[in-house]
Design a protein around this nucleic acid. Sequence first.
DNA 1: AATTTCCTACTTGTCAGGCAACTTGGTTAT
DNA 2: ATAACCAAGTTGCCTGACAAGTAGGAAATT
Lengths: 250, 250
Amino acid sequence: MSRVAKPTDRRSASAMRDIIGRGPSLADTLALRLKEEIVSGHLLPGEKLATEQQISETYGVSRPTVREAIGRLKHDGLVVTRQGAGAFVADPGAVSVFRLDVADFSNKEEIRNIVELLMAVEATATEHAATRRSNKDLKKIQAHLNAMQAAVDRGEPGVEEDLAFHRAIVEAMGNPFFRDLSDFLDRRVRNFIRAARANTARMGGMTHSVQAEHQAIFDAIVRKDAAAARAAAETHLRNAAARLALYLER
Amino acid sequence: MSRVAKPTDRRSASAMRDIIGRGPSLADTLALRLKEEIVSGHLLPGEKLATEQQISETYGVSRPTVREAIGRLKHDGLVVTRQGAGAFVADPGAVSVFRLDVADFSNKEEIRNIVELLMAVEATATEHAATRRSNKDLKKIQAHLNAMQAAVDRGEPGVEEDLAFHRAIVEAMGNPFFRDLSDFLDRRVRNFIRAARANTARMGGMTHSVQAEHQAIFDAIVRKDAAAARAAAETHLRNAAARLALYLER
DNA sequence: AATTTCCTACTTGTCAGGCAACTTGGTTAT
DNA sequence: ATAACCAAGTTGCCTGACAAGTAGGAAATT
């Protein structure tokens, strides 16, 4: 009853722009709006959304645009639609999609939280990789370790080789969720570092200690010593986080 | 000269269905198709996608449908579009959205992997919660512990109270990423258990030992003993996983 | 001849209207 | 009372059109 669509006249295509503000696109922004309504608890699970027609009218956008917006929510598992019936807020327990949005790069708190998650994921992955790795896995890991060493010897930072080394380890764990999540977080953090490094002096000279830490991780994996592997990974990640903290504190 | 779209007659609306197979919706399925093209490396970062017009013709669907599909990819950060220029494959390093899809419920391997991730996240969260929790956090955790006890005394399984207890702990850690991820995984696993329980006998009688494990976690948090908190959480999670394994092995 | 300006075709963003498929609830017929 | 049926409402998808922005070549200027 409360949010019944009042028939906004259609004359201005920019009505939405006024209501909703400037954004990436009408559909995107509308999707955000509707998502708000749901996560804020304004719309309860199972409840029926307004019809596309009504939404179209209340926000002053066309139905295709509304469809695009609802399509996003459907894609994220927040709503389910039934042809002929309508669109309904999905049961939170049945949502099968998790979305991690790491948009705000300038937010240092967010970076810290991301790093924390990365540490947890990679430390555990390394721990399990130690006992599960096949000989083939081990060879791959070693190859990347050597490549990293070669890069260090050439005086290069070897960020790509570094990433590949860690990825090979996580891969050896055999859990795709860990692999994908770790990959994403890793890229994200490195991207931040690269951006931050642009306006600060290079710090360099750390690569040798980094490589020593890598060696310690590798040795533990060779021995299939899970506890040692975890410990070595934690040390490595803690040091990496400390290096990163230097960027954060300015 | 504009390449006039040949007036596709109505019946070929099912052309896509033939090309693309039966699915949730044309847009959804098309989105999957296009995603394939990208992640398979067929389309390289920075490369331009076919125009909406072209895609529309090759797949035999209308442009709005193509737009919906591309909109999904855009939403997931896989492509970026520039009005007037086209749609381009996004740089993987710049992707700021992570998507975790846990669709296949029947896949036991998947459940196992999910549980593994859940264990890593919750154990770490509990560890950090021990040192970071405020007194207010502690009160909340205790309240949920008591509620759980009350449920046990009433002879109920207390799944909701259980979930709330863990959520309060993760909340006390103060990292929203951990909170959201843990919440999602927890729901997912419990949902699986509920589904599995439907066709097996209730196992019950475990609730008392569960509560004892909860108490151990709580005590460690009270003492701000991070290591003990992690250990207690790991024990609890390991036991929970073992209980769950009973469902998996049939 | 080199450079700048401008124009035009192309592409994405959005809108309007329409038909088909499906759901739902009430009405009619049995 | 029950079953079959019908009509309104809703989503799924299509066609056609225009606005807004881009890019590359033609034309004008230096």
